[in-house]
Amino acid sequence: MIKCDLCPRHCQIAPGKRGNCGVRINLDGELKTLVYGKPCAVHVDPIEKKPLFHFLPGSKAFSIATAGCNLHCKYCQNWEISQRLPEDVESIDMPPQKVVDEALRTECKSIAYTYSDPIIFYEYTYDISKLAKQHNVRNVLITAGWIEQQALIDLLPYTDAIKIDFKGITEEFYQKMSEATLQPVLDAIKTIHKNNTWLELVNLVVPTWNDSDADIEKLCSWILDNVGPNTPLHFSKFWPIHKLENLPPTPVATLTRAWEIAKNKGLNFVYIGNVPGHPGNNTYCPQCKKIAIKREGYEILEYNLDNGTCKFCANKIPGIWE
């Protein structure tokens, strides 16, 4: 029997069997990964799509993912790859060097480990990250953050930015929605912040699940108390999919209300994702309140920063701009 210590689930895996994520297997007395070098999703996306608004804005991210995930969220947008076994998806051969080469070839400034969750293709992520760093390509993790501390700490030296899905603020939510727990995510957020790795948070607002004022306020309080007002927080609109097709999509009004609560609480960089035209798309300078970056969807319409400082009032805006 083997105990996997990569994520808080700590699966105890019998010989020949796999962990809960479906991609780590106990073979010949060793734990092996079945997705190394076999991504099933490879795209070039704007970095804003992740969403990362304070990291190399306007740049392209070479995005890859393999099958599997250690969470099983009812609303998963990528369930067709995340809730599948590696043999049930179409994947291509892409050893780490090839990933880096392709990223360079497509003029991507960063490699994004996304769609499913880089945690479950950890070894692949790690090797690519190490290689990418040597070639001056940045590494961005798009993850739920449900990872064991040691694995996270070992990956941070090669990671340039992380976007964590801060899905909810109660254990109950994480259990019911994602078959996971809250605390390890909180610990991961704190560790990343302590390590000074660039961090942005996303909260998917799901009607009747976590859309109440109390939920939003509690979430924002935690962020303020633990990582401060300068960590960007994105509120995302939920679309009925996978196991929650019976719910309505999040009304814009709900998102706007969440946005306002967060700003009132003191968070400086609050965004509304996937609602074109909303003022929540823009970055506002916390000092002079002017629009530092104007966005329409994933496109940048105005860029009023100079080396990360507001052109209007010279206030330094946190982020990685170059």
Binding site: L6, P15, R24, I25, L27, L31, L34, G37, P86, E123
Partner: peptide
């Protein structure tokens, strides 16, 4: 393990999946 792992390895190989050593585990 001995009987099954060979069978499993063959099945995986047929699907183009190659197991690679993983990290963060214990016996």
């Amino acid at each position: 393990e001995k009987n099954e792992s060979d069978k499993i390895k063959k099945e995986l190989e047929a699907k183009g999946i190659r197991p690679v050593s993983a990290k963060y585990w214990e016996k």
